[in-house]
Simulated scan of single mutants.
Amino acid sequence: MTETPNPYIIDADTLTGEMHPIRRAVIALGSNLGDRLAALQGAVATLADTPDVWVTAVSPVYETEPVDAPEGSEAFLNAIVLADTTLPAHTLLDRALAIEDAYDRQRPATHNAPRTLDVDLIVLGDRLSHEDRLRLPHPRAAERAFVLQPWFDIEADAQIPGVGTVKELLEATDRSGIALREDLVLEVE
């Protein structure tokens, strides 16, 4: 059973010692350069190998049209990973960035440029953060079908804290640019 800390009592990331609550992490994966499926599978495997992270579900894979990307950008493969973790939010974010780096993610000045791998922390329990480096929940997740649809597929009753249910948010988004790829499957090893 996953326990979510009461945010009104203590900020769980400030706990000291060995005590860390277990929280549900929702992590979005995307790739539109190189061997897209291999990059997503590698990210799933690396997350599953991360100490104090227990992958509990991986969504179906969707092929999606690029959103707010430079002209000529290729289609993305996208998926969602659900995990239980005791890692603090900043540590999990650092792990996500390290996974991107392992797959040669380049960070050009162009906003939403093509990438070999994108690993975004969408939600971490009830944790809220408005820091420049860490925004929780992810500020654009509620508007993006490529996040909401695969998440809904594996957790139909999910909510984005302070925003709404994934089901209601998905119903309000344009889903025309996403297609389920039943021929592509991500495995938890």
Rank of each mutant, 00 (worst) to 15 (best):
A96D: 04
F152G: 01
N112L: 03
E131F: 02
P137M: 09
F76T: 09
W54S: 12
L169T: 01
V81C: 08
R107A: 05
T110F: 05
L128M: 09
E65K: 12
F146P: 02
D157E: 14
A141N: 03
R140D: 12
V58L: 05
A89R: 06
D132L: 12
P108L: 12
D49S: 13
L77F: 15
E155W: 02
R115D: 13
T86P: 00
F146C: 09
H130W: 02
D49H: 06
A156W: 01
E155D: 15
I154P: 00
G164W: 10
T116P: 03
L128N: 05
T56F: 07
V55G: 10
T110Q: 15
D52G: 03
G72D: 10
V81K: 08
V185H: 10
D94L: 05
S59I: 06
T56P: 10
G162F: 11
Q159S: 08
N78V: 01
R107T: 06
P139S: 12
E74I: 05
W151H: 04
G177S: 13
V53E: 00
Y103C: 06
H138A: 08
A96S: 15
L180T: 02
L82V: 03
A69R: 02
L97Y: 09
D49I: 01
K167F: 13
V81R: 06
Q149D: 14
V147N: 04
S176K: 13
D68V: 02
L92P: 03
I99W: 10
H130L: 09
F146N: 05
P108F: 11
T86N: 01
P66G: 10
E71Y: 05
H111R: 15
P137K: 11
P150I: 13
R135T: 14
A48T: 08
E74V: 04
L92V: 01
L180I: 02
I122F: 06
P51M: 06
A75F: 13
D84H: 14
L77I: 00
D101L: 10
W54V: 14
P70R: 07
P60I: 07
L169A: 06
L184F: 15
A158Y: 00
L47Q: 06
L97Q: 15
L148Q: 05
L148Y: 10
R140W: 02
P51V: 08
A83T: 10
D132S: 13
G162R: 02
N78Q: 08
A96L: 09
V67G: 08
R144I: 07
A48V: 05
P161M: 10
T91P: 03
E100N: 05
E131P: 00
L124A: 09
A102R: 13
D174R: 11
A57R: 12
L148P: 02
T46P: 00
A142Y: 11
F152R: 09
S129F: 07
A141T: 11
L92N: 08
A141S: 06
A69L: 04
S73C: 04
A79P: 01
A141L: 03
G177N: 07
T173K: 08
L124W: 06
D84E: 15
L93K: 07
A179C: 15
P60F: 10
R181T: 01
F146M: 04
A75M: 12
